[in-house]
Amino acid sequence: MTEQPVLAVEGLRKTFGDHAAVDGVSFTVPPGGSLAIVGESGSGKTTTARMLVGLERPSAGRVLVCGTDRTSPPRGRRSRLARARDVQMVFQDPYLSLDPRVTVAGAVEEPLRLHFDLDQAARHARRDELLDRVGLGEREAAALPRRLSGGQRQRVALARALAVEPKVLVLDEATSALDVSIQAQIVELLRELRATLGVAFVFVSHDLSLVRHVADDVLVLRRGRAVESGRAAAVLAAPEHPYTRLLLDSVPRRGWDPARIAADRRALA
């Protein structure tokens, strides 16, 4: 008896004019699971993420959360709110993803006010709980985003997304704009949140070495198509598709041979 996936994507396709940005992508994520969608620019990974949260309308294919179709745009307030409680998103650029005029506390309270019928005391308690969960205190809560560092802002974005209590959280390159020492903090936080909250994660990333530490499953996209998928550990240890291998080889490290990678890349093109 297989468990119903929390997120199922079937034959997803998005065309811009003649160009197919995403072309027949399918995958599933089990409850509490974690999938990494990996690719370079132009692979369609960000377009896929935007279709998952409803910022982009698929040209074909379906997106199902817990078996409910959410492919076409929502009609009315009820369905809009229901959709929002399915999937939330954290964006790449922490400097652009918060309203500069809204305090940290306000940013977390807004979704609480929209989605839950709480009195003020309960709302404040929940807000403080969420901020505490992502490692932010009272001082940060009262501040405007411009007073915060990139890492702190990304924590706010996380708290704000989790406030809705989504079933799936999409992280679109959520750590790639951060410094390494801060990125690792956020990765630690994400691992912890996943363990305690049971929310399913979809990571969109270009960084394979990061994927290894945050995702159970991986889906490699190239030019809008899936070239390889499977358990992250297995795919990264023994890639089957030459493109996956190229991506892995391209990660810089000591004793790295960029000339050979360049030759492999040309052979593949």
Partner: peptide, 25 residues
């Protein structure tokens, strides 16, 4: 040492460890 520990690595099972706090502005 902190930077090295914070860098995620393909060849290691050890998850990256963050450096606490934030850079000096």
């Amino acid at each position: 040492a902190g930077l090295l520990a914070a860098t995620p690595r393909l060849e290691s099972d050890e998850p990256p460890r963050g450096v606490p706090g934030r850079p000096v502005s």
